[in-house]
Design a protein around this nucleic acid. Structure first.
Lengths: 137, 137
DNA sequence: GTATTATTGAGATAAATTCTCAAAGAAAAA
DNA sequence: TTTTTCTTTGAGAATTTATCTCAATAATAC
């Protein structure tokens, strides 16, 4: 399975780089649809997977939401507001240390992990939108 | 929305406690189906959500796989083998420290997170099943 | 150029979960 | 304890996200 350098693949990679705000596959679909290039959804998903394997793109699994994709830079975590859904980066250089600690404790090798922190952003906090602070039942 | 104490809700909670190995909703469905109690899937999903809100059950979001549910004990992380899929606990008491660090860095409040580490278990390693070590393309 | 074979795209399919809504049944009120 | 209220149930439809199918297309190698 030798990879080919197709127009579509380049367009998907370019879209992830342009849409720097962690686009979903659907975001990319719409972005490319607006620009003449009418890529099919299957093509977008397929190429995102290929680009992930190549290490050019990083897939972020978000709880209860579609996966997002990140232009690969240095390792970092992500943070999402439980109220408004805003999504961003967190710099907290713990990745290697945690992976090593888990490997040492369990005997597993090639350990990796991602984290999507969940919290209430300052804006929602100020606006009193924080429903997680309300009594549950 | 006052919660009612139904037979079904108790059965779902009991199933999560009995199936201590991080069951999926489907595991619970089958477990209860085998025991006379023919709960509908909708009922199981609904009750798992309620029990999570009540803090009696913890939902574990697993990348590229159905969610698993954990009888709530003290906070801990999870670890999955990329080869055989085996799934288990990891004790690494970092939760509070990381949440506080993210809160301090970003101004977000009520920060929480989960981690599902991914690695190769010693058995798969020994059996040479580690496909992630092979060249990619 | 021609042959080989990865890639595309439209739509079908799959997997996980939620929604719909009439019937059933807790809990509260009378 | 009867009635009223309103949450919950369950079967199946619907939704969402993502993958698969397969004939047509197009990169690459020869």
């Amino acid at each position: 399975m030798i990879q080919r350098n197709t127009v579509q693949r380049r367009q998907v990679l370019e879209a992830v780089q342009q849409l720097y705000n962690h686009p979903t596959a659907e975001d990319i679909y719409e972005y490319l649809a607006e620009r003449q290039a009418g890529l099919g959804r299957a093509t977008i998903y397929r190429n995102l997977n290929v680009l992930c394997e190549q290490g050019l793109v990083h897939k972020i699994e978000v709880p209860d939401a579609p996966a997002r994709f990140d232009h690969t830079l240095c390792a970092h975590y992500h943070l999402q507001c439980r109220c408004c859904g805003s999504f961003g980066d967190v710099s907290l250089p713990e990745q290697n240390r945690l992976d090593r600690a888990v490997s040492k404790e369990t005997g597993y090798t090639a350990v990796t992990h991602d984290i999507v922190f969940s919290g209430i952003c300052p804006e929602c906090r100020a606006a009193g939108k924080d429903r997680s602070a309300e009594p549950k039942a």
